[in-house]
Amino acid sequence: MIMQTKLHPALIAIASLIFLILIAPLFIILGAAVSDTPFLTFPPQGFTLKWFSNIFQIEAFRTTAITSLQIAFLGTFLALLIGIPAAYALNRFKIRLPSWLSNVFVLPILVPEIVLGFSLMKNITIGLQLPVYTTLLLGHTLLVLPYAVRVVGASLASFDFSIEEAAISLGCPPLKTFLTVVLPNISAGVVAAFILAFITSINDVSISLFLTGPGVSTLPIQILAHMEQFFDPTIASVSVLLMLLTVGVMAIVEATLGLTFLTK
């Protein structure tokens, strides 16, 4: 008979407590979102879905949600467009490149976002007088670039580059080799990078705070703005929808690649 290792009661207690602390705020939001009161409260008093329908009544929520999705998709796309070739070069020519170079691509994560946002506003919005939408897109591209480089890079680190040489020796030109041989073999990394970058962009506040402007705003910024004027449960219901979006994306990842994939 195999002896089952008993978990220490204290371990169970502490683990449960931490889990509760992590998950409780989400339930509070969920409760607050359905409360039939004109202000945010918990536990909920009564039950209503009118705050959810209220979101769709407010024009600003709809337009900022669209902007957020556009910026997230475009920014992530641009970041991958730069990040995949960068990750490729960093791995392929590792020996010939200086070792600090790969760290340059992580700088946007290391530098406090608030500093990054302020600096972008000062130099791009004010300095170069670029349109607000363009600046916002550039800011988000920069914000998610480290995810693209790092996650795709992790995939490339285990890629055997002699496969690429085999394709070239068989008559496949280098660019075509990259697209038809290298890319299919790092596709899982590209998908993971896309998801991480997309979620990061959709949830970003600090950079967007500086780079949004007249007529162009993102959903998280709109949530902040709304809360300053109305302290009603609409905020909670928007948050619930954002949570559902994230959970939905995660469910797709789990179903297709497995969640352990993201922590690899």
């Binding site: 055997d160 040489e165 085999a166 394709a167 020796s169 008559g171």
Partner: peptide, 20 residues
Amino acid sequence: LPAHQRDIGLVFQNYALFPH
């Protein structure tokens, strides 16, 4: 001449088959 125009059959130590 670029490598892909040389028309040489190569066999590698680690096989280098296309996994996909």
